[in-house]
Design a binder for these strands. Structure first.
Length: 483
RNA sequence: GGUCGGGUGGCCGAGUGGCUAGGCAGAGGUCUGCAAAACCUUUUACAGCGGUUCGAAUCCGCUCCUGACCUCCA
């Protein structure tokens, strides 16, 4: 299996540090507002990665943090804490904000059928670990304190290590291009960033520390928590591409400065979700909320899309490509998703043949694994699955053969890839009452049709269509589905 | 300005030297009281110019367009 490593900018063979164990750390959300769809894409991408690694038999410890403290507005190191600011706005305690949006995040993740991480640590729950790490960095000579605030000394660090290793930029260029930002008069260097920030009296969230009362800088939490749960060196660290240049660059620097080891073997970055070609982001205000998407309550949407249709939409693009979010594209995915699921249902009804199978299962299986082994290429996997889908439909029609042995293998294989690896699931969970009511309505309509009372049968069909129920007439019977 | 990507058929989106990606839409067909749904078959492509090669969407050069990061964001 190969994984594209941002660190080296090539696909590398995946060899865990301590196989079969795999340490996977993903930067989670900052829970001061609703997660938007772009955030979800990253977590769905890493859900796929987590699922596939597990499917291959790796024992994965998946750590995804919750940032619930210390995340500043802008890069002004004397800025407001995002939680405190939002809390004042909503007249709530900061931890109420954290609780509200953490629960909302989990709800959305559940709807998208993502597996929960093995550990979901919070920044506020690891203040002492962060303080300890900062102390060690100061002790090692890569940070300094100014009036209760601790800064990381980037230029000092860069004398011994390569600060810009992840983005391959020149430090000199960065120095030239850095704007005049807050806290500059305290900092020794323009690129220095805060590890610990002195709390002003009005700050709601603060903790005691060797440097006085304050709160941690954004980047230190991930360094502290990843090393605590995965060790000083672990296999995979992931996040959105937007985090690479600043957050992840600083994480590497902090860990190196603290432990003198490169913390991560494979850095993986997911690309952005775009709307009309522009990145979906909180600050631009062009973000979709998942619930708007599910309900269709948004000016850009014709109707609501189910979580699985959206998940399918995201899986149809590779995680390192930008993905453009349009109504047409979603509609296409919705239909494709239904088609795939329909053929899986049909597979259960395929009758095994005595003759040789017309489907080469070995080759099919190999192609599926080859797709995923090539840096988790889910679009190619889906293309393979649609080949199987076409075969299933033919076999169901009696136009192709599959023997009992192969049929069982095919079922197992498809279930593994569709449900376990891609994390898709059947959504048509109807209540018993609905099921019985629909049986009744369909029976009445069938009777009307038998009497050639087409006015009645057609009006039933049209009325159901209007409330979103599609009747599917076939030779033998009538079934229904949500349209 | 610096760094790194991308430009693929009506839309989305894979593919990195020769072999139909796939999905949706369109067209034709099967089925049907009509229709829808479903299924089957199927047309349209690699931004432009030049080069390397027996052969390039794929490698190289130039041009144009475009995105991300460099400032909080997955």
């Amino acid at each position: 299996m190969v994984i594209y490593n941002t660190l080296t900018r090539v696909k590398e063979n995946f060899e865990p540090i301590n196989t079969p164990f795999v340490g996977l750390y993903v930067c989670g959300p900052t829970v001061y507002s609703d997660v938007h769809l772009g955030n979800c894409r990253t977590f769905i991408s890493f859900d796929l990665i987590y699922r596939y690694l597990s499917h291959l038999g790796f024992k994965v410890r998946y750590v995804r943090n919750i940032t619930d403290a210390g995340h500043l507005e802008g890069d002004r190191d004397e800025g407001d804490d995002k939680f405190a600011k939002k809390a004042r706005l909503e007249q709530l305690e900061p931890m109420e904000i954290v609780q509200k949006y953490t629960l909302g995040f989990h709800d959305v993740m559940r709807l998208f059928n993502t597996l929960p991480p093995s550990i979901e640590p919070t920044a506020t729950g690891h203040i002492s670990e962060q303080i300890e790490m900062i102390r060690q960095i100061i002790k090692n000579g890569y940070a300094y304190e100014v009036d209760g605030t601790v800064y990381f000394d980037v230029e000092k660090y860069n004398q011994e290590y390569n600060y810009t290793i992840l983005t391959n930029r020149q430090l000199a260029d960065l120095l030239e291009n850095t704007r005049a930002l807050g806290g500059q008069n305290e900092k020794h260097g323009r690129l220095d960033f805060a590890l610990w920030i002195k709390a002003k009296p009005e700050h709601l969230m603060h903790w005691p520390s060797p440097w006085g009362t304050g709160f941690p800088g954004w980047h230190i939490e991930c360094s502290a928590m990843s090393s605590k749960y995965l060790g000083e060196q672990f296999d995979i660290h992931g996040g959105g591409m937007d985090l690479a240049a600043t957050h992840h660059t600083n994480e590497i620097a902090q860990s190196q400065a603290c432990n003198h080891t490169s913390p991560v073997k494979y850095w993986m970055h997911t690309n952005m979700l775009t709307v009309n070609g522009t990145r979906m982001s909180k600050s631009k205000g062009n973000g979709f909320l998942p619930l708007e998407l599910f309900s269709g309550n948004h000016p850009l949407l014709n109707h609501g899309y189910s979580p699985m249709a959206v998940r399918f939409f995201m899986l149809q693009a590779h995680y390192r490509s930008t993905l453009d979010f349009t109504n047409d594209a979603l509609q296409a995915s919705e239909k494709g998703y239904r088609r795939l699921m329909a053929s899986l249902l049909l597979l259960e009804k395929v009758k095994p043949s005595d003759r040789n199978s017309d489907f080469n299962l070995d080759e099919f299986s190999q192609r599926c694994y080859a797709a995923m082994n090539d840096d988790f290429n889910s679009p190619v996997l889906l293309a393979e699955l649609f080949e199987a889908s076409r075969f299933i439909n033919s076999a169901y029609d009696g136009k192709a053969d599959i023997n009992l042995h192969d049929l069982e293998i095919l079922k197992k294989l498809l279930h593994s890839f569709v449900f376990d690896v891609l994390g898709l699931k059947e959504e048509n969970s109807q209540t018993e009452d609905t099921e019985k009511l629909m049986e009744l309505i369909i029976r009445l309509r069938t009777e009307a049709k038998a009497d050639k009372n087409y006015a009645t049968s057609d009006s039933i069909r049209i009325a159901l269509k209007e409330i979103g129920i599609q009747l599917n007439d076939s030779k033998e019977n009538t079934s229904w589905s949500k349209s």
